[in-house]
Design a protein around this nucleic acid. Structure first.
Lengths: 251, 251
DNA sequence: CAGGACGGTTTGTCCTGACAAAGTATTGAC
DNA sequence: GTCAATACTTTGTCAGGACAAACCGTCCTG
């Protein structure tokens, strides 16, 4: 009898079938908690999905969907004929499409923004191309200086098509661009970024409180909303001494 | 009667039920082709999934799975009560976990590698921590200089645990690290990267054919295989004048 | 004419059932 | 003892059906 007993046993889970939260999600969330809290040790094998579904009182497709969800997050690995294993709970979310403002606010680093320029102008060639709009279409163009905890961190140039969102100077000072876009229902869903480096000109150095020739991280980005419409083009400069990009990749 | 006729009509698809390729994947691939070739215009709405399933001769779950696959790739967007829309076919794959060597080879830029150092040593603190192994465990440590089309491009320091893979100098000269890992069955599936910038020291500048103080892109990365085992730690330096990172993000 | 109620459309969730394919372990033959 | 055939376990794929929830447009009422 080839019984391969699993070593990661999932206790019963209280499910709420009246809740608007889908069943598969309730199961997935509970499982994720168990893994993160160490209730199901890393490297252990889960029970097979048929048993699991039966014991938790859900159908196999629902159980599969919950497991699949965690597989996509990189918490579980499945092999046909073998089983489902818990792997490396540290690395989780694929990549976050977040804004600098959000990142700073989340880590309590008091973001502040100084708007150095804001006007409506026809889109120049490279901006129009990046946004996929006609050259000369109206865009709001602005330059911001971003501070964190009182220190300058980045110079940001951005373009937003005027028919996507009318940008007010006052709003932009208090809230991040992405927050404004989200509030207007223009939620960025996809972005293409190019990250590079160069040295600071004297003008840039002065603004960023660095010396001429200091290393800067450059990032240019185009973001689209869920309907595929380009909502933002950005060309940013970060002080390399204070900022770096962190990202998690999965195949 | 509120009939909302779709404007993106999917023609019948020849499906091969004897093929080992899953049905849902055949459907998805065909659909993807149609979108990329412009057969189904961007912005158009697809027929509803029930009809589509019926016409293609598959069940609704299968049809849903095919559509879901393309939604995850960012080619389609669905809204309950509305339908499925084609969006922006340009931006596709989430992120690729590829190696510099592969990238260069693919674009025909003749990668060449010079191994400047290779030995087995106990893992120092920061490497052990990044790899999640005990301090002092044996690793293969090596420094490589990577050329593209005859010009120096990057200085790469890497560590690979000896029990993951025994690295031979000769192999490394002809093939990329990731190719070696894959060949040994240690396929990298997940990676954590931090990208920053700094200026070159004179030693680094000499190697890279730059001048002292030239901007460099820095990248440190830890990669894991599918079982969650750390297979590689890398600390790389790229000439910012010749290299930048490009990535696509989705929520 | 404005605004809410209503109905139709479309995707989302969930279930049961069945067979296929890939690994793993056991068994049996040589 | 070694190796190949076999049985078993586990995940992968697929079908068909049912109801719920969100969205859109229309109609009716005030």
């Amino acid at each position: 009898m080839g019984e391969r007993t699993p070593n990661g046993v999932v206790p019963e889970v209280p499910l709420d079938r009246t809740s608007p939260v889908p069943l598969y999600f309730q199961v997935a969330t509970r499982l994720q908690q168990l893994i993160e809290d160490g209730g199901v040790p890393v490297g252990s094998r889960l029970e097979n999905e048929v048993e699991l579904a039966e014991r938790l009182g859900v159908s196999r497709p629902t159980m599969r969907r919950a497991i699949q969800y965690l597989v996509e997050r990189g918490m579980l690995v499945r092999k046909r004929g073998v089983g489902t294993q818990v792997v490396h709970p540290k690395v989780r979310r694929p990549v976050e499409l977040s804004s600098l403002y959000d990142d700073l606010a989340k880590t309590g680093r008091e973001p502040r923004t100084e708007i150095r320029l804001l006007d409506v102008r026809p889109a120049p060639d490279h901006v129009a191309e990046a946004l996929g709009i006609a050259v000369g279409s109206d865009i709001t163009w602005f330059e911001r200086l971003r501070f964190a905890s009182g220190e300058p961190l980045a110079i940001m140039h951005n373009a937003v098509p005027t028919d996507v969102l009318a940008i007010e100077r006052a709003d932009l000072e208090r809230r991040g661009l992405y927050e404004l876009l989200r509030a207007a229902g223009r939620v960025p869903r996809m972005a293409n970024q190019v990250v590079g480096a160069r040295t600071a000109t004297s003008a840039e150095a002065r603004l960023l409180d660095e010396s001429r020739g200091a290393p800067l991280l450059t990032m240019t980005r185009t973001a689209w909303d869920e309907s595929g419409r380009a909502v933002e083009y950005g060309s940013h400069l970060y002080r390399a001494s204070r900022y770096s990009f962190e990202l998690t990749l999965t195949i």
